[in-house]
Amino acid sequence: MLGLLFVTFFIGRVMPVDPVLSIVGERATKEIYEAAYLELGLDKPLFVQFFYYLRDVVQGDFGTSLRTGFPVSGDIIRVFPATMELATLGTLIGVFIGVPLGVVAAVRRGTWIDQFARVAALIGYSMPIFWLGLIGLLVLYGILGWVGGPGRLDIYYEDIVPTVTGMILVDSALDGNWEIFRNALSHIILPASLLGYYSLAYISRMTRSFMLEQLSAEYVITARVKGLSEREVIWKHVFSNIKVQLITVIALSYAGLLEGSVLTEIIFAWPGIGSYITTSLLSADMNAVMGGTVVVGLVFVCLNIFSDLLYKFFDPRAK
């Protein structure tokens, strides 16, 4: 984690952008420039600067975003729920379709359904997601009008629901405002399905190979000899054994989506952490980039720890 902070900090300092210049502007006098330079602590050695940065970060202070003019931590709290909403829905789609698909593909190995799962996964791996998003928008929104367009809501629905969690689907449901809920759903469904398809490809392949590994184990034969029905063998015996490995896979894919699927967010004008970091980066707003990257790294580490804990919970041997 410390290393992560250091690398972000280092990248931020190596950037060929003068942080002073972007604050005071091109036409500032020499005195103002010097004052800002000292105020930012840029005269101190790099190591001391890093120490100051570390101290601030521990207190939850990532500095002020030059682009938006707000504290970075506030910005992140505002944009993160959008990403979380999208990633959660995407992962749910991936899990609820990917896991059964992987199980069936393993059990009916070599049949058309296995081939279908394999091809579907390969296409998912190979698809440039930003392009699929564009085409999806073109066909489903532009031509057919079945889904909402870019953004999280239609413009005349914005800022009506009180913000509780920041996730519009949850907020509008809490508020009982089903019209907005429907509208938000029509906006999120396309990007979430795209992300869902992507994680589905990964999850179904991993499920299949875990299942195959277990199906050749001897306890499966024992269970069958005992006369258990095929359904019981598969779901009760085999599936319980792959559950633990699956958790790690799902956590990884969830983390991947939470890290901000930058391209998807940009295509759909989704105000999440991925597009926040990217736009900040393009406008050389290093405080925001560093803050965003640190938070994303933090989320990644936390999810890893969380999946380790779940691992211990589900697998008695790991204790």
Partner: peptide, 24 residues
């Protein structure tokens, strides 16, 4: 391996973006 882990913990595209932004 710690260095490797640090690089792994970064979101890949964001890291690539940061490098491109730094290098041009």
């Amino acid at each position: 391996m710690r260095i490797t882990d640090i690089f792994l913990a970064f979101p890949r595209l964001v890291l690539a973006l940061a490098f491109v932004a730094a290098l041009g």
